[in-house]
Design a protein around this nucleic acid. Structure first.
Lengths: 142, 142
DNA sequence: CTTGAACCTACAGTTGCTGGAGGTCCTATC
DNA sequence: GATAGGACCTCCAGCAACTGTAGGTTCAAG
């Protein structure tokens, strides 16, 4: 039986985060020692590793909850799993496009700055006037 | 004198967000009508437009607070403004690199899926085992 | 003068954790 | 068997940057 700190170390998760996952029902309520400390089985370790890995790939906790739910029905088609992953890919691609536009705009802004008085700063001028922007960069979310 | 809703419409900001900016000291406390409603001058509109534009470029409210403070000293060097913008550019570039790795991983994962039973789903397998990943994708933050 | 859209305050909720306070348990060593 | 100190416990507050709601007031057009 594994203590919570062991799970934390093995998955690179903070102890509080594991308790948080339990609170929101992503991790099961584990057994307890006589003194009331959490004791995990190795299946719990796998589940946590899955969650963490999916988080690293940017899946939301809601998406992960769905994925875990789907994984419980091994005989069903994995079309839904696929759909969730594709949705995530589309998000990533959309975000990439936006971030690229942002990067372009920032580089241009910085490149035009002659580094003298604030009064003449191109960076501030561009920020003041959206019309000076060449690219679309609505709602970057990052 | 402009009502809060007018500012909101002209800058694409929610009314509550403007009140929030006031609460945290990013927007000034405006004058009030006899009945107690906020009344803005056109300078306030410019300030809000600046804030929104910087937000669209992904600057944090703290960075924007700094930029606004710097803009108040027009005779000083704009080196700090430059530094803030460069910092933001580096963030964007780092995030781009991470997102590209994520996209690659997701595409590979999805590409390998044969779309049959959940039990054999490559997407779930990859999520279960980080060792199957080719790319680094720690902490995507998006 | 009436109506209804826009405004007001105050506060709760969102996502995904993180940190702290104040106290208890576990286990290795003596 | 006692003790020390790390790991654990619960509960709660806070982060960013808003968004939404409830319950009430004001403004301006007709």
């Amino acid at each position: 039986m594994l203590a919570i700190g062991t799970l934390a170390r093995r998955t690179g998760t903070k102890v509080q985060t594991i308790r948080y996952y339990e609170e929101i029902g992503l991790m099961p309520e584990p057994g307890r020692s006589r003194g009331g400390q959490r004791r995990y089985a190795s299946g719990d370790l796998d589940r946590l590793a899955f969650i963490r890995h999916a988080r690293q790939l940017g899946f939301t906790l809601e998406a992960i909850r769905e994925l875990l739910g789907l994984a419980d029905n091994p005989e069903r088609s994995c079309a839904e799993v696929d759909a969730i992953a594709r949705r995530r890919l589309h998000e990533v691609e959309a975000r990439l496009a936006r971030l690229e536009a942002l990067g372009t705009e920032l580089r241009r802004m910085i490149g035009e700055c002659r580094h003298d008085r604030v009064a003449d700063c191109r960076v501030l001028e561009v920020l003041q006037d959206h019309a000076e922007c060449l690219t679309d960069h609505d709602r970057p979310q990052a």
